[in-house]
Design a protein around this nucleic acid. Structure first.
Length: 276
DNA sequence: GCTCAGGTGGTTC
DNA sequence: GAACCACCTGAG
């Protein structure tokens, strides 16, 4: 068990920030997270009051994996402090989503996840990932005996046919998944190399894969490769940019942290009218 | 029925 | 380079 004593870390906010589709609330403030082939049970804190967040893993596993995964060594307080004081909207958005973190997720998993995300809603995206993992992912079991499905490796998905994927209701994205899986499994696009590239290089390399355009490439760059200048512009973000920023985000003020701002805006736009 | 949901790729001017 | 449009599926 590892307790997180950090005011700028909220599991419920990360869950609803739309960057991770395998983090789900179960009951009584508990969450379950599958990342690649790993499983983590989490007890959410109450937002910096009495209860701290608890990760149900060993200190060793935390230090060797989850600490980096949750980007615990970055100062999100610093990111918030860097928001233009005159930008009231962005300050409010940052305040509202101050527990969000930019996760460091697996590149392959993000490639497939965000190809599936196009023209789709979040509940359905989650369902499709569950279906693909259930069909092609390795069957795993926690020490407590809970079964779960790992995210399928590239060679497993490369072996699937488009018809099989269509049977899982992936729709026209099936063709993209087949093509992309084959290019990655064959090494035509080498993800180990992509991980070493800077943002513009990695983005250009990802654009070679079928079904990946600028928006999806930016999601992968931000949520897997941690290129903090990536700023995915989807329909929500575009709506806010048009309404608040004359259609264009002031990138010059946010060198090295534009992606964090994108997450604050996205989360604020999606959830501020709800319960928070 | 129709529209919409975290888009991409192809065609057309 | 901008402006269409087809593309699976299921919910409202």
């Amino acid at each position: 068990m590892v307790t997180i004593d950090n005011q700028y870390f909220s599991v419920s906010q990360i869950c609803r920030s739309g960057q991770c589709f395998r983090l789900d609330p179960v009951k009584d403030g508990f969450y379950e997270l599958i990342a690649g082939s790993r499983f983590l049970r989490i007890k959410a804190g109450d937002g910096g009051k009495a209860e701290k967040t608890v990760l149900y893993c060993s200190r060793k596993e935390y230090e060797s994996f989850w600490r980096e995964y949750f980007d615990m060594d970055a100062s999100y307080e610093g990111y918030l402090a860097g928001i233009d004081p005159e930008d009231e909207y962005l300050r409010a958005a940052g305040q509202f989503g101050s527990g969000i973190r930019i996760l460091r997720q697996d590149v392959w998993e993000m490639i497939i996840t965000f190809i599936l995300s196009q023209q789709n809603n979040i509940p359905r995206i989650k369902g499709l990932i569950r279906a693909v993992s259930g069909e092609y992912g390795e069957k795993m079991e926690t020490k407590e005996g809970k079964m779960y499905d790992a995210f399928p490796a590239p060679d497993r998905l490369a072996a699937a046919t488009e018809e099989e994927l269509r049977a899982l209701k992936l729709g026209y994205r099936s063709r993209y998944i087949c093509g992309t899986a084959r290019m990655v499994a064959s090494g035509e696009v080498d993800l180990d190399q992509v991980k070493k590239m800077d943002y513009p290089e990695a983005r250009a390399e990802l654009l070679k894969l079928p079904g990946i355009g600028g928006k999806v490439a930016d999601c992968i760059c931000l949520f897997a490769l941690h290129h903090m200048d990536a700023f995915p512009v989807d329909t929500h973000i575009q709506k806010v940019l048009d309404a608040r920023y004359g259609g264009k985000f002031p990138f010059e003020k946010y060198r090295g942290c534009a992606g964090v701002m994108q997450q604050y805006i996205f989360y604020y736009d999606l959830h501020r009218s709800g319960q928070g």
